[in-house]
Amino acid sequence: MTMRTAELWIAIALLVGSLGLMWSIHSDGLSIEWIEGRGPGAGVWPFWLSAGMALTCVWTLVRWFRSETAESHDLSHYIDPESLGLVGISFLSLTAMLLLVHVVGTYISVALFLGFYMRVIGKHSWQIVSSFVIGGPIFIYFLFEWQLSKYLPKGWPIFEEGFLWIDNYRWEYLM
């Protein structure tokens, strides 16, 4: 897809989204007018801002049809095909890591993600990869769980119980 085409489709999508916001406020029964004795209704602010968003999208579309925006006469690729693979795999592997957080918890998924990215994409040596795979989760555990007392997701109960054992050890012997 060229930049020119992308600008058109994104402006249309944003216009539809803005109209959707206006409809959502209206359908929720929020007042978009002045209420006597109470001031502006709860929907006034978001409704009229969304209306403004819709107008700016129309403005962009008009400019596109008149070839006034820089992108409207740019026929280069919207996403550079040479980098598309790298950008795509980075985003997908991050998504996979977040999905895994729900199953195996933060630490295992972070270790798998770092290992995959550095070894498969980065082709770094096993020595470097293993130092990050082991050191990364330990650093996160130390900083967030230990020092900041933040409980990070541990996934399914079987994995959570494993970490409870580590937590118990910390509370019993290291605190």
């Binding site: 980075s90 991050l94 890591m97 993600f113 770092l114 990215y117 550095m118 994409i121 980065g122 082709k123 770094h124 470097i128 990050f132 990364g136």
Partner: peptide, 8 residues
């Protein structure tokens, strides 16, 4: 390839 996963 080392910096990106750390930031993420």
């Amino acid at each position: 390839t080392m910096l990106t996963p750390i930031i993420f």
